[in-house]
Design a protein around this nucleic acid. Structure first.
Lengths: 154, 154
DNA sequence: GTATAAAGTTAAGCCAACTTAACTAACAAG
DNA sequence: CTTGTTAGTTAAGTTGGCTTAACTTTATAC
């Protein structure tokens, strides 16, 4: 029988090496685009989660609506995101990523992926199959966890 | 036969869900410690890479020596890291993490791990075994890649 | 309809990170 | 020993993200 501790150890080791590597490339690329990290993060959120209002931004990043408004302003001026009136509620705004913004985000993601492709090249075909299967398992479970209601500390 | 594209897809999906989740917890914790992100990053580097001089910090984070000196100053004043003269070169300083600093970093890492433990709980024993094995494979390969000389763009 | 709440913006100001420039101290070469 | 280089610090000033406070506009409740 496989003890849980074994799994824990395996995934922690992987996280350490992966995070280390991934963060470095991410920060480097964010800097090269001329965007600050908060700005880059907003772009990422819009790309992964789709269009949303200002309130989602300020809540998601734990900043005041004023701060969110100012950050978004800069991105709009740079043509990276679009801000239009929500037709269902004229007080609200709908933020969405533009083609230019999407290109920028996708290139950043590619940057991270390059390392992974290198990694794939060092594996045998059987190893790749084995790893693929395992990753599919934890990805599925992780997504299930994500969609569950999140508990906030008081 | 397993095509490389299959592996690539599996690992990219995992990266997406993992990064998303992990970054959130990381940022949240860094904020709760009262440290800024650059300060927190320096702590992480000292923890993972061990003691080093100021120059390694300024190079590693792509900032001027002046900026590094000021950041380190704050961490030293907070008792999180130690700055002593290098006995081999009295111009240089040796930076190392203190017990207090290590506790802080370790707790931040724990924070990230908590989610993974939750994830482990949702797997069967067989799945855990399968995933462990696969992760060990890519961790080993990733570490090999890390230790190879890094190529810098001109 | 009027009052209250909600979504966002604008303005003023604070603070941390960063830069450049000028500096000190220690090593290295001749 | 003097000249030049390397490691790091200090000071002054800039910038960007953030906050609070006051405001506009639209929706909602009674």
């Amino acid at each position: 029988m496989t003890k849980p501790i074994q799994f824990t150890q395996a995934i922690r080791s992987w996280m350490d090496v992966f995070m280390h590597r991934s963060m470095r490339g991410w920060g480097r690329y964010a800097k090269s685009t001329g965007l600050s990290m908060p700005q880059f993060s907003i772009m990422m959120q819009l790309h992964y989660r789709g269009a949303c209002g200002m309130s989602k931004v300020s809540e998601g990043f734990d900043i005041t609506p004023a701060a969110a408004s100012q950050l978004v302003d800069k991105l709009v001026h740079n043509g990276l995101i679009q801000r239009v009136e929500d037709p269902h509620d004229r007080r609200a705004k709908l933020l969405s990523i533009t083609d230019k913004g999407r290109d920028l985000v996708l290139e950043g993601i590619e940057e991270r992926y390059r390392w992974v492709d290198e990694l794939a090249g060092k594996l045998t075909a059987e190893e790749r199959a084995q790893v693929s299967e395992a990753l599919n398992i934890i990805t599925r479970v992780a997504q299930e966890l994500e969609s569950e209601p999140v508990q906030h500390h008081p």
